[in-house]
Computed example of a mutant assay.
Amino acid sequence: MQFVEFKNTDELNLQFADRIAKILANAIDAKGKASLVVSGGRTPLPFFKQLSQADIDWSKVSITLADERWVDKSHEASNTALVLNNLLQNKAADATFVELKTKETSAFGAEPSVAENLKALSFPIDALILGMGEDGHTASLFPCSEQIVQGLESNEVCIAVQPTTAPHERMSLTLKSLLNSEQIFVHSVGDSKKVIIDKALAGDDVLEMPIRAILKQDSTPVDIIWAP
């Protein structure tokens, strides 16, 4: 695990976007396609806009989310809409977006449909970008949810989750799927997130802080990308 600190968010967004673009371009050169998994929220929006201008063959890139709230694209909480409106723009408009949200009414029972959609992605994922919540959750692997143990231990590609501390049912990639990546990045900004990172690194209980299952493993390289 490496901690990569930038002096400000502008520098982070510029250099991080350049690094991701190079990873994708190298994957395209090596195997003719590339896969990118991103996370929602407000933190990555300027990064998405920077990355969308990268001069690579986006037609050979497939993109999906690490997790999604079970809401329609018209809903303000939709991460799908956030990615479509901020990342799949400019040159990146040619990329293929693989949706986690399906037509099923509930996320529970929709896992087979989502898993089928995810077959359009090439595993291992070339680059996975995760966020991290104040409670130490990542993707939708919430410590408060009844599904946390299953999410950490399941061999399935995805899992429906109902957090008790956040609204909406979710669909999340399982820990096994998240770790099936060539490179993982934990993207965080601000002093409060640095405190959470330090707390996560200081302990070992993954049920208390699921982000530890990412940070404290040695099967997949992890870089923490941070700026104050």
Rank of each mutant, 00 (worst) to 15 (best):
I56A: 12
D57Q: 15
D57K: 14
D57L: 14
W58L: 13
W58E: 14
V61W: 02
V61S: 11
V61Y: 01
S62H: 15
S62C: 14
S62T: 15
I63P: 08
I63D: 11
A66W: 09
A66N: 15
D67I: 11
D67T: 12
E68N: 08
R69Q: 05
R69E: 05
R69T: 07
R69I: 08
R69W: 07
W70H: 12
W70S: 12
V71Q: 01
D72A: 14
D72H: 12
D72F: 05
K73L: 11
S74G: 10
H75K: 06
H75F: 00
H75C: 04
A77P: 07
A77C: 13
A77V: 09
S78W: 08
S78C: 10
A81H: 08
A81E: 07
A81D: 06
V83I: 13
L84Y: 07
L84R: 09
L84Q: 13
N85Y: 02
N86W: 10
L88N: 07
N90W: 07
N90Q: 13
A92I: 09
A92Y: 10
A92C: 08
A93S: 15
A93L: 10
A93Y: 02
D94I: 02
D94K: 14
A95M: 12
A95E: 13
F97D: 09
V98I: 15
V98K: 01
E99F: 13
K101Y: 06
K101I: 08
K101R: 14
T102S: 14
K103H: 11
K103T: 13
T105H: 11
S106N: 13
S106P: 07
A107P: 09
A107I: 12
A107D: 09
F108N: 01
A110N: 03
E111M: 09
E111W: 09
P112C: 12
S113W: 01
E116P: 00
E116H: 04
E116F: 00
N117F: 06
L118V: 09
L118K: 10
K119Y: 00
A120C: 03
L121C: 04
S122V: 01
S122C: 00
F123L: 14
F123K: 11
F123E: 11
P124V: 04
P124G: 04
I125F: 00
I125V: 13
I125R: 00
D126R: 01
A127C: 13
A127T: 06
A127E: 08
A127I: 05
A127S: 11
L128R: 03
I129F: 02
L130S: 02
G131I: 04
M132H: 00
G133M: 04
D135G: 06
D135S: 04
H137S: 06
T138E: 08
A139P: 06
S140R: 06
L141N: 05
L141R: 02
F142N: 06
P143Q: 07
S145M: 03
S145G: 02
S145V: 03
S145T: 05
E146K: 08
E146R: 04
E146T: 03
E146W: 00
E146L: 03
V149S: 07
Q150A: 08
Q150M: 03
Q150R: 04
L152H: 05
L152C: 04
L152Y: 06
E153D: 08
E153C: 02
